[in-house]
Design a protein around this nucleic acid. Structure first.
Lengths: 255, 255
DNA sequence: TAGTGGTCTAGACCACCTT
DNA sequence: AGGTGGTCTAGACCACTAT
C-alpha cells in the first residue's frame, strides 16, 4: 500500500508512519469504503507493509472516537461517519454530555415497526431485524426544541409497542417495562443547518443552525438504541465543567 | 518491584500488567512520592521488571490526563498533586488535530494588548485591566479549520507578549514561560452559522454551519483565559463515550 | 554527549467470538 | 478450528533537550 510521500509535511520532516496510515484510514472510512467490513489488524499490517504495532497506533484514534469497533474475536466494523460525511479531527471534549434539562412535552410524530438494514447494522443486528421506530417533536415551553428519532430492536422492547410517549421518558419505560437500563453510550455531535424538512417540523427558517446528535446506547455491551436528534441551535447549548480549579459561579456571554 | 498479586481482579482473572502498574504509579503520584523528579521509561521498566512497551502503556493514562509530563529529551515531572488535572493536552484542539493524524498550522491574525471591559469582567478582572489578545486562524492539512480568539490578563502572561504562536500550543507556552498550568475550566458549545466576517476568515460560505465554543480556563481558582473558538461544522465533530457498557473498548485505567 | 521519549519491528502467547 | 484483538517482550534507531 502506497502512502503519499509528497503529502503534508510538518515543518519539513515527515510525519510518523502511523499518523499517515491513520489519516489514510480515516479518509477511507469517511468515503464509505469499508461499508461492509473493516479489515483486521493483521490484514492491515500486510497491506500497508508495516508491523502490527504501527497499525495499532494508527487505529487508536479511530477506535477512541468510536469510528470503528474493536472487540476480541469479532470482526471489526465501521460505526459512524460512513454516510459520505467526512469528519475530520474529532475531540472527546466531554467525559459526559449532559442532555438533561430537556424534560418537556413531546408530540409523537411516528411510532411503528420498521425494517431498516442500515440502522440495524449500526445496532449490530441482522439487516432484516424488526425495529421500533419512534419519532418525537420535543417542546420546551410549548415551543419546538428538537426532533428526536429513535430506533430500538423490537424483540427487546416489545412492551413499548403500546406505550404513549407523549408525556413519558423513553428511558423510564425501558427500565420499568423491559428491565433495560442503558449503561453506556457513544455520541457524536455536529453543527449543521436546517433543511426544508427540519424547518417544517421545527418551525424555523431553512438554514437555521442545528445540532445533530447521533447516539448509540448500550446495555451490558449490547447496542439497544440508535438515536438521532436535531436540536435548534439557538435554544440549546452544551456545557461542561471540569477540573478542580473552577469556582462555583457560572458566567455567560457572547462575543 | 512487587505488585499486589491478590489485588483487584476482574471477574476472577488478573488485570493486565500495564493496568496494575498504571494504578500503582497513579497511587504513588497521588501520594507525592515523585515530588522532585519522575523516573524515566527505561528506569521504570527495570524497576518493575517489565519491558518498555508495557511501561509506555501504563504511562499513557497518566500522560493523557496531564498528571506527568512527557517530552523528548526532558526529564519527566509530576505536574499537579495528581488529582484530576486533564486540561491542556486533553481538550486542546491543537492536540486533537494532531491525534487524528493531520498536520496543523496556525496563522496569527492579531496579537496585541487591549482593554475590553466586557471580557475583563468575564475573567473577574477590573474593567480597565490590560489583556493580551491573540487571534489565530487554525489550519488542518493546510485547510482552514477554526478561528481561535484568546484573551489573557497581560500582567500574568508578560513572557508571552513576544512569542510567535504560529507553530506552538498556547498551553505549552503558558506552562513553560509563565509557570501556569490550567487546572479547570468551563466550556459552552453552541451551533451557529457563519457571519460575513466568519466566512471571510474561514473561507466558507455565509450561513455555513459553525461550532462556537467559549471557554474560561482557571489556574488555582483564578480565571486565566477566555477563549472563543469558531470551528467549521463540516470539519469537526465532538464525540463522547461514557459508561461501561460500550464494547468499542477504551483503555480504562482506574485507580 | 548523555539521556529522554517517539517510533518501528518481529515475534509470541492468550482470551474471546464466530463458525 | 480459525480469526480477532489484547498483551508482553526484546531490540533498534531517531529526534529532541539538557549539560
Amino acid at each position: 500500500m502506497l502512502l503519499p510521500e509528497d503529502g503534508p509535511r510538518d515543518g519539513g520532516r515527515r510525519r510518523p508512519l502511523w499518523q499517515r496510515i491513520s489519516a489514510d484510514l480515516a479518509a477511507r472510512v469517511a468515503e464509505g469504503e469499508y461499508g461492509d467490513g473493516f479489515p483486521g489488524e493483521y490484514e492491515l499490517a500486510e497491506t500497508y507493509g508495516v508491523s502490527r504495532g504501527t497499525i495499532r497506533n494508527a487505529l487508536r484514534p479511530l477506535r477512541e472516537t468510536g469510528s470503528v469497533t474493536a472487540q476480541r474475536g469479532r470482526k471489526p466494523r465501521v460505526v459512524m461517519g460512513g454516510h459520505g460525511s467526512a469528519f475530520g479531527p474529532v475531540s472527546s471534549l466531554f467525559a459526559s454530555v449532559q442532555a438533561s434539562g430537556m424534560t418537556q412535552r413531546s408530540i409523537v410524530l411516528a411510532r411503528r415497526v420498521v425494517t431498516d438494514p442500515a440502522t440495524a447494522t449500526l445496532l449490530s443486528l441482522p439487516p432484516t431485524e424488526k425495529l421500533l421506530f419512534l419519532s418525537r417533536l420535543r417542546l420546551a415551553d410549548e415551543e419546538p426544541l428538537a426532533v428526536d428519532n429513535v430506533w430500538l430492536p423490537a424483540r427487546r422492547v416489545a412492551p413499548l409497542l403500546e406505550v404513549d410517549f407523549a408525556d413519558t421518558a423513553l428511558y423510564k419505560e425501558l427500565r420499568e417495562r423491559c428491565g433495560i437500563t442503558l449503561d453506556g453510550g457513544q455520541e457524536e455531535l455536529r453543527a449543521d443547518t436546517a433543511t426544508a424538512a427540519d424547518a417544517e417540523r421545527l418551525g424555523c427558517a431553512v438554514g437555521a443552525p442545528l445540532f445533530r446528535i447521533q447516539r448509540i446506547g448500550y446495555h451490558q455491551g449490547t447496542a439497544i438504541e440508535l438515536r438521532c436528534s436535531h436540536i435548534l441551535g439557538d435554544r440549546y447549548a452544551v456545557t461542561a465543567t471540569f477540573g478542580d480549579g473552577v469556582p462555583a459561579a457560572r458566567p455567560a456571554a457572547e462575543t
